[in-house]
């Protein structure tokens, strides 16, 4: 194997790495912002709110991210109204379409994670909060969310890693992310092993950093559950 072409073009990989990190952190931040209120509403909301949230989550979890991305990037242009609207300058850009579809996708999975964590709150804690005279909002802020978000952390860590790896499909709609950089190098030099292994190992390195980060965070957030030392 000959990695010299890779080193010569390492800038391309670094640019791709930057775009990958940008897309992933962007969609995770937006997705989490969307998912926390929806996840809580999926448990505490009225039926007419719970049902649409359930349908949203089910549909986006039941279809491939690639299909969702294509529906937004290629699909929306089919409608004259969309092309005429003020959103078109955004919706015709591959970058924004990738970000929107990634956000909706990770949002759907995160809603389910948060919903599960909120729904499995120990009942006694809810009753205690009610007995203390807390309103629903105050109870959510002081009792439910701190506990639920903490318990959602391990599952959310998996979702973050899934999103990192899922983001590689952005390269299919012409974006030059980490995978896109590898595809360019492969088509330019015909070095499939070197090109894709380099990208794969970089993804793996980010994965390890994320796994380590979440482990630290879990240690911190679950400190009260650790057996006492000494």
């Amino acid at each position: 194997m000959d990695f010299s072409a890779i080193w010569q073009n390492f800038d391309l990989y670094l640019g791709g790495l930057r775009l990958t990190l940008e897309l992933v952190s962007g969609c995770l931040a937006l997705g989490l912002t969307l998912a926390v209120p929806l996840g809580v509403l999926a448990v505490y909301g009225p039926l007419w709110v719970r049902v649409p949230i359930g349908i949203y989550s089910y549909c986006f979890r039941g279809t491939p991210l690639l299909v969702q991305m294509f529906l937004i990037y290629y699909g929306l242009g089919q409608f004259e109204a969309v092309q005429q609207s003020i959103f078109w300058p955004v919706l015709k850009e591959a970058y924004w379409c990738a970000l929107i579809s990634f956000t909706l996708n990770t949002g759907a999975y995160t809603v389910e994670i948060i919903r599960g964590a909120v729904a499995t709150m120990p009942h006694g804690e809810i009753e205690a909060a009610r007995a203390c005279g807390m309103s629903t909002l105050l109870m959510l802020r002081r009792i439910v969310l701190p506990s639920a978000l903490r318990r959602a952390l391990p599952a959310y860590g998996n979702e973050v890693i899934f999103m990192l790896q899922g983001s590689s499909i952005a390269s299919i709609i012409t974006l030059v992310d980490l995978t896109g950089a590898a595809r360019i190098i492969n088509s330019r030099y015909y070095l499939p092993f070197e090109a894709f292994l380099t990208a794969g190992l970089l993804y793996m390195a980010i994965t390890f950093v994320l796994v380590g980060g979440f482990r630290l965070l879990e240690r911190r957030w679950f400190a009260h559950l650790r057996p006492r030392e000494g």
Binding site: P192, L201, Y203
Partner: peptide
């Protein structure tokens, strides 16, 4: 488990 599906697929297909 550390590499994205798409990267592995391209690696195996082209490689």
């Amino acid at each position: 488990r550390g590499m994205p599906d798409l990267v592995l697929m391209l690696l195996i297909f082209f490689g």
